[in-house]
Design a protein around this nucleic acid. Structure first.
Lengths: 358, 358
DNA sequence: CTGAAAGCGCTTACAG
DNA sequence: CTGAAAGCGCTTACAG
């Protein structure tokens, strides 16, 4: 006797003989025609049950759904996507999701899209533009209906290819006057300037910088240096480190930097992890933070507020970026294509969270 | 004059007229036949250039590649996958990637698979088993060639469905004697027991617990309580909190717990974030850690070592899990299906990182 | 090393 | 509300 476990193979075995002979491979699983046959309808009707149930008679709907349930049928979206030109896939190209704020963005981006019936194809590019470009081809081969990109520094050939494909694109985590399509981000340059401002207001005269050398960190650096230059401070000691940044890197870089610039009274670090490392090093050097040496990070990791109240940081809302990036794409996907001229840009801003000398 | 930007539309416009009329949609982009025509070969040869270049004559290869480059052709993997029954997709079902160690696992899992020509379909399930099950159907509709699952607590119907599909499956981040297929993880029960052991060795007699109520946290709790029971400690104060856990939750839960169990001398927290919150609360209550109150977390977040040296924690290697999960799947995918009886299980273990009283 | 034919499992557009 | 026909863009299996 068939057990509950073999529900799919009780009385539909006879169909096997009725199937047209396949020239390729063995039986690969259930097809829409199997469901149609059992339910006594045409394949088109089964298709409608999944894609436009409101256009199917209630009894038919119910009957087909029962067969689907009983057989355990799962539609093949490779076939569906090919046929309809709707992959229901959205690609996200991000440098990394580990130890980073991007993971929050991807989390909510994915949640928002999945509620709307899309799935996310995740592509991790590291921090190189060339790698991003070759990833794009891989990703485009799945025919995604939209793409999330990190940053705004892309090769011309990537921009061009994306334009040719004609799908909605959101750039995130940065800002520019010439987005490819849509954008949800903030200005790294302004962040650098704001941190410089913050240091200046508190009377610091010898600010230094520990930064990764990726595009966005370099934009923050530029804002930082420009604002300082306006205040007449031209020589800013700096240490550029390769991503990914970490506590360890911050810890060993600060002493190096201070050796070169002994009178440093403030350091802007490219990330909270670097800042935490710098703080540890400062402690070992007997420097009190922020009194003798102010340290500012970037990212506002949750734990930092609790564990390192001496650090200033810059808060950025990765969640808001993810939600809005998803919404922008969905608006375009649902809204019809005549909206394609309506570029959308959202600046989510940032907040400098200062620490007062205790 | 056509500029460089319109390379794809210089001299291949004439083909448009030669195309068979489509009954559906407009021209959707380049097809393999467009490349074939330009290169003067059959579509099959173009297909081979992508899928088995070694079987194509060098000159043919070169010629086709130039046309591909010039036209900017990207193969349609929806079609390719449908035709070949190889989607080149692997699905990963994870509760969350934000603020979590899972993000590391997914990072390296994705990197490893992408080097082997696979892409990752990311599905976020939250912490509910029913949500995991419905996600599975969504994911299976893409016909992935393998699946990564988080944990070992799955519904029967999910296990059965996966068995029917017959693709390789790796369960991760936990362990069991009855894996669905393959497994890379460690024992949460043993971790709980080890932490209890750690507390007992240091003479703690009133250990308590702050834990999330998800399956894995509950397994740690069981190990913790069982080991304590062996030592004659039966009544263990505990506070169960809903995921996701956070610093804030830890901070407000500890005082609550201590109000109920005043003589508590040690707390095992379900995560480092909870532990950091508990540490903050202890500080506010004027309790010295670890002298008056020992606190143990879980996860060994990188910053914790630097910023909260008073905390004990349990280190788990999420990276190793990701790499090996990917390898297990790839071995099965490449190794042929007769290896399907060879179950593979890897226990990556864990380390309790104690803090001595300072 | 290369190709003509058939098929992968769906959906569109049309008709009723 | 339902269905027969044609097609989506590839690849398999066979032949040469």
């Amino acid at each position: 006797m068939p057990t509950a476990k073999s529900a799919a193979s009780t009385d539909d075995r006879k169909d096997a003989a009725a199937r047209p002979k396949r020239t390729r491979g063995g039986p690969k699983g259930l097809r829409i025609t199997d469901v149609a046959a059992q339910a006594g309808v045409s394949p088109i009707t089964v298709s409608r049950v999944f894609n436009s149930p409101e256009s199917v008679a209630p009894e038919t709907l119910e009957r087909v759904r029962q067969v689907v349930q009983k057989l355990g049928y799962v539609p093949n979206r490779l076939a569906g996507g090919l046929s309809s030109s709707r992959s229901r896939l959205v690609a996200a190209i991000v440098p990394t999701i580990s130890h980073s704020l991007f993971s929050e963005t991807i989390q909510v981006f994915s949640e928002t899209l999945s509620r709307a019936g899309y799935e996310v194809l995740l592509a991790l590019s590291g921090y190189s533009a060339s790698s991003e470009e070759s990833l794009l081809d891989t990703v485009l081969s799945r025919r995604p209906e939209g793409v999330l990109l990190t940053g705004v520094a892309h090769t011309d050939s990537l921009r061009e290819r994306l334009a040719n494909v004609g799908i909605p694109v959101v750039e995130t985590w940065d800002t520019t006057h010439t987005p490819i399509d849509m954008l949800v981000g903030f200005s790294h340059y302004e962040i650098g300037a704001a941190v410089a401002e913050h240091f200046l207001e508190r009377g610091m005269r010898r600010p230094a910088l520990i930064s990764a050398n990726d595009m966005r960190a370099l934009a923050r650096r530029a804002g930082f240096r420009d604002r300082l230059a306006q205040a007449g401070i031209e020589d800013v000691a700096e240490a550029l480190v390769a991503p990914p940044s970490s506590v360890a890197v911050g810890k060993r870089t600060l002493p190096e930097l201070l050796a070169r610039a002994r009178d440093t009274d403030a350091v802007f670090c490219g990330s909270d992890l670097l800042a935490i490392g710098a703080l540890g090093a400062a402690r070992q050097l007997g420097l009190s933070v922020p009194t003798q040496l102010a340290i500012c990070g970037f990212g506002d990791l949750e734990f930092a507020t609790e564990t390192t109240p001496q650090l200033t940081t810059v808060r950025v809302d990765g969640t808001r970026i993810g939600v809005n990036a998803a919404r922008f794409l969905l608006d375009r996907l649902n809204g019809g294509s005549n909206a394609s001229d309506e570029r959308r840009v959202l600046d989510v801003g940032f907040t400098v969270l200062p620490r007062e000398s205790t």
